[in-house]
């Protein structure tokens, strides 16, 4: 399910089937790191779109969680996001990010952090871009399915 009116209305009806939330976590850097941050956003968005296509009926893609990477408490909001999503009925919460600092903070977020190093997609042709994202996403598909199976057994 995408973050739009139609899908979220369907989510509210079919809550018992949709137990997974995906949060794109992206830095909002308006200084010299701007293009790096924008590249990360572009990459993460494409990846998340692909996963949403695969698993439309079981996961909801939330609006991106943007943070200011140079603040001292840059990671402090994430735990609150996880908390609220879990209260809303999501059993599994995944944070998708290209910022490797999140790996050390995984425990305090209370969610599963999936770190994917971002690839500058800039001038790449669409078909190349698509197959690159697809390859990355296939590995993540396995991680997600594994999580689902672990929670059943």
């Amino acid at each position: 399910m995408n973050w739009n009116g139609k899908d979220t209305a369907l989510f509210l009806q079919q809550k018992e089937y949709i137990d997974t939330a995906i949060v794109p976590v992206v830095p909002a850097d308006f200084g010299p790191g701007m293009s790096g941050a924008a590249e990360q956003y572009e990459f993460i968005q494409l990846l998340v779109t692909f996963l949403e296509k695969q698993f439309k009926g079981r996961l909801l893609v939330t609006p991106p969680h943007a943070y200011l990477p140079d603040l001292d408490e840059w990671a402090s909001d994430a735990a609150e996001w996880t908390d609220r999503l879990k209260k809303a009925g999501f059993k599994h919460v995944f944070l998708f990010t290209s910022d490797s600092r999140w790996r050390e903070r995984e425990e305090e977020t209370g969610a599963a952090v999936i770190w994917v190093p971002s690839v500058p997609l800039g001038d790449m042709e669409d078909s190349v871009k698509y197959s690159l994202i697809e390859n990355q996403a296939k590995q993540i598909v396995n991680i997600i399915v594994q999580k689902w199976q672990d929670s059943v057994s």
């Binding site: 369907l10 079919q14 089937y17 949709i18 296509k53 695969q54 698993f55 439309k56 009926g57 079981r58």
Partner: peptide, 8 residues
């Protein structure tokens, strides 16, 4: 497209 909730 799955006729349940639209997965692949």
């Amino acid at each position: 497209v799955c006729k349940h909730l639209g997965c692949t």
